[in-house]
């Protein structure tokens, strides 16, 4: 078993196979859970938050047993956890490491910051084209206004 001597890893128990998402900012953990729909699946999930991290301040970690994500799905969390790292686990071994990347389009998870936008008046699924990835800037396909990182809100 890898990392068995690392007391920090032991705060959240190891999984036999599945996905570990590390380096999530503690402040956005629940947004990540929501974006990935982890509150609606039946897999075993353990998470830890407000863990000390040398690089990120307070971080969070999620371990999802028996779950593997498509790139398109996992990249959706890049908006709130841009430095997240994925460890894909099989037989207690990390078989692959992945980083997340902001996708070219963002649908259904971000809120348009323009109070006069139709998406804030009617039940319209928000759709954005990503015009900048770092810092994130999203152009609404409806009102054509830019929502930037500072004003970014997750629905």
């Amino acid at each position: 078993m890898k990392n068995v001597d690392d007391p920090k890893q032991l705060l959240v128990s190891a999984i036999e196979s599945g996905t570990v998402i590390d380096h999530i900012p503690a402040s956005t953990l629940f947004k990540v859970i929501k974006i990935l729909g982890l509150d609606r699946i039946r897999n075993q999930i353990t998470f830890g938050t407000n863990l000390e991290s040398k690089t990120d301040g307070k971080k969070a970690i999620i371990k999802i047993a028996g779950k593997f994500f498509e790139d398109d799905d996992i990249n959706r969390i890049a908006l709130v956890a841009p430095n997240a790292k994925l460890n894909i686990i099989r037989d207690y071994q990390v078989i692959e490491k992945r980083v997340v990347e902001v996708p070219d389009t963002i649908n259904a998870i971000a809120k348009c910051m323009n109070p006069k936008c139709i998406t804030n008046f009617e039940k319209v699924t928000t759709r954005f084209r990503v015009v900048s990835k770092k810092p994130v800037a999203l152009k609404c396909l409806y009102c054509e206004k830019i929502t930037d990182q500072e004003r970014l809100e997750i629905i």
């Binding site: 348009c112 139709i118 998406t119 319209v124 409806y142």
Partner: peptide
């Protein structure tokens, strides 16, 4: 329409 994006919708 006074609301922005209403036409696209």
């Amino acid at each position: 329409h006074p609301i922005e994006g209403s036409a696209r919708y």
